[in-house]
Design a protein around this nucleic acid. Structure first.
Lengths: 205, 205
DNA sequence: TACGATAAACGAAAGCCTTTCGCTTTTATG
DNA sequence: CATAAAAGCGAAAGGCTTTCGTTTATCGTA
């Protein structure tokens, strides 16, 4: 086939199809991506530099699709809650994307803006100097961990029937896996915020 | 070659070589593993079921190599600190292993024992029912996130010179990347414990 | 002692994957 | 109107994991 009258491939279509593949199969490959769009593998390289760029484009896409709202008079707690929730929501819609992104440097503008807003909120809260980055790293680890939890196998821990009585008993109290994840995230977010609070007011108020 | 007088492959040697490859290259493959031991790829399948099993064996190995000590009269805080630190130390010695393990169900006995000890400590602290699992999940997300941070590229966030002033300024305060990670982990662990405390005593003591 | 079962190596091959290269044709630019 | 760039294609190189059949040494048992 020669050059078509109207391009068969667009970056938008590429990202959409790749995201579908990840949602369905937990991974994507250029052969499958090409087949889904109906073009050949090599044609894709006319639009992106390779697999990595497609991954970074997907990161931008899902963050954009899960906006957070920062209101004017909002205190830092509310801002932090909104940001972390939206970040987590983004990955909740595409759980299986998280593991594919953990190793890549964040370069997407939308995502960097999210971290900038986080930094502003923490400074407003009263954190200074190195503590700002430490707090960002902590929040990041927390959010990333929970994002990965969404992609983890339904049974994260598989203790045999014998031994591990406390763990086994706790797991039976947890209910189905999606409820466990949801409850744990709410719990964890409150723990996190309470912990940050205590750092700001070392002695009881 | 026929069956050799003394086996060329042992599971121990397999895991050791695989771990070396991961430390060096951030990944391992059966061809490379076979070449390092000096056997053919397919011989490995006489000892393990496949790639996945080797990964799980590596998880067991690094946890065993980073023991934690639980003393008798120890309070839950000390136990939790010891467990989380040892978990993180294990991955600090082999940072590039973490990304390879995030998707696999935990089946190794040593690792399950670690979670059992976590559950016991949390119950001693006073958590009950669903909260025990929520707390475990939170701690797990936290620890996993920081383990991944060790494997992340030196520059996790790459904001351009323009824009993102607060984030950029915070990053300059953070110093080199390993110091940032270390300080952040200490910070995060204290935040986490303080947060858990606050959950136990909803009203100020 | 003889013999069959098992263990542990091998080579070959199937079927994935990413990426590069050269070729063709259309479109846009100057 | 000529030429360069863009956008498709097919072929192929060089990875990867895993399966299969074959060979041979060892071990337990009759």
């Amino acid at each position: 086939m020669a050059r078509p009258l109207v391009p068969l491939i667009s970056i938008d279509a590429l990202v959409t199809a790749a995201l579908e593949l990840v949602d369905e199969a937990g991974d994507f490959s250029l052969p499958k991506l090409a087949k889904r769009i109906g073009v050949s593998q090599s044609s894709i390289y006319n639009h992106v530099s390779g697999r990595e760029e497609i991954l970074e484009l997907m990161r931008g896409r899902i963050i954009t699709e899960s906006p957070y709202v920062l209101e004017d008079g909002q205190d830092w707690e509310a801002a932090l809650r909104a940001i972390v929730r939206s970040y987590r929501d983004a990955f909740a819609r595409h759980p299986r994307l998280a593991p594919l992104l953990v190793l890549q440097t964040v370069q997407d503008d939308q995502v960097l803006a999210l971290y900038e807003n986080l930094a502003v909120a923490l400074q407003e809260a009263g954190f200074r100097g190195r503590d700002v980055v430490s707090a960002i790293s902590t929040i990041d680890s927390f959010a990333l961990g929970f994002a990965l939890d969404l992609a983890a196998p339904d049974v994260v821990w598989a203790p045999p029937a014998q031994g591990y009585p406390t763990l086994t008993s706790a797991l039976t109290h947890a209910g189905p896996s999606d409820e466990r994840g949801e409850a744990a995230f709410d719990f964890g977010l409150e723990i996190l915020i309470a912990g940050l609070h205590s750092r700001l007011q070392p002695t009881a108020s």
